[in-house]
């Protein structure tokens, strides 16, 4: 099965072509903010390199979130359209699961986190069994204090003493984190292991659930500030997205 995998969730734009367990071609553009400009040409470049056509792809895979809202929408819109027009399969995975998958062969607790500013993180923790991730601290938007408590609890429940932390905003706080979790031994991921790699997505995508291209949306894990303020002010329920968009 030929899979095209895309992550536009973070500043690292990552694209990979995989066929079963083999990565056929992969490319990344680090710290590029203009994913919109670079994504499609990068896909074409990899297809050319592999000697494939877009229509040869059997399954499109995307990092659904969390991540940069705008970034996520670029990748998700692109694969929605590909899958919808070419009538091919679409799968989406947690950005944090893909990030944690950098340590798929570890028996430690893997914390994947993306800095969401002001001591907040989009984060989750995973353990791996036979290379498959299980989400033991649910992906969510956490204040650092809450995240630390959740890590502590998950480590206890899973019987893990050693914890790997990957992503952004963590290694800068290594001393504070270690001090806050004195019973655990923390290892901070280095360099490329802090990045979301589409080649890893390509492997996770093989056993992922097939989604309906019309229904799939980014997994933002957080409502907009405007909606939260409105909810607080009016006490009204958020409602379904479909309540608010109507064809005229």
């Amino acid at each position: 099965m030929k899979i095209l995998s895309i992550s536009t969730a973070t500043s690292n734009l990552s694209v990979a072509l995989t066929e079963n367990e083999r990565t056929v071609a992969a490319a990344e553009e680090t710290d590029r903010r203009n994913h919109s400009e670079h994504l499609d040409p990068l896909i074409n470049q990899l297809l050319k390199q592999a000697g494939w056509q877009l229509a040869d792809i059997d399954r499109f895979a995307v990092a659904l979130g969390p991540g940069s809202y705008t970034g996520l929408r670029i990748g998700v819109t692109t694969v929605k359209m590909f899958a919808s027009i070419l009538n091919k399969e679409l799968v989406g995975l947690s950005t944090l699961a893909i990030l944690a998958d950098n340590f798929a062969h570890s028996d430690q607790l893997v914390v994947a986190a993306l800095d969401a500013r002001n001591d907040n993180f989009f984060a989750g923790a995973y353990i791996f069994k036979n290379g498959q991730p299980t989400n033991v601290v649910p992906d969510g938007h956490y204040h650092l204090d809450k995240l630390l408590a959740a890590i502590k609890q998950a480590a206890q429940e899973q019987g893990k003493k050693n914890v790997i932390l990957a992503g952004s905003g963590l290694s800068e706080r290594s001393e504070a984190l270690q001090a806050a979790l004195p019973d655990l031994s923390l290892t901070f991921a280095q360099d490329q292991d802090n990045q979301v790699h589409a080649s890893h997505l390509g492997q996770l995508a093989r056993s992922a659930k097939i989604l309906d291209p019309d229904q799939v949306l980014p997994r933002y894990l957080r409502r907009t500030q405007a909606e939260m303020d409105w909810h607080r002010k009016t006490g009204k329920p958020f409602g379904q997205d479909s309540d608010y968009v109507e064809e005229v």
Partner: peptide, 15 residues
């Protein structure tokens, strides 16, 4: 941000 979220909800269907 709300506008962007709504756009992606309907883009394949309205195509």
């Amino acid at each position: 941000e709300v506008a962007s979220r709504h756009h992606i909800e309907v883009i394949t269907q309205i195509t």
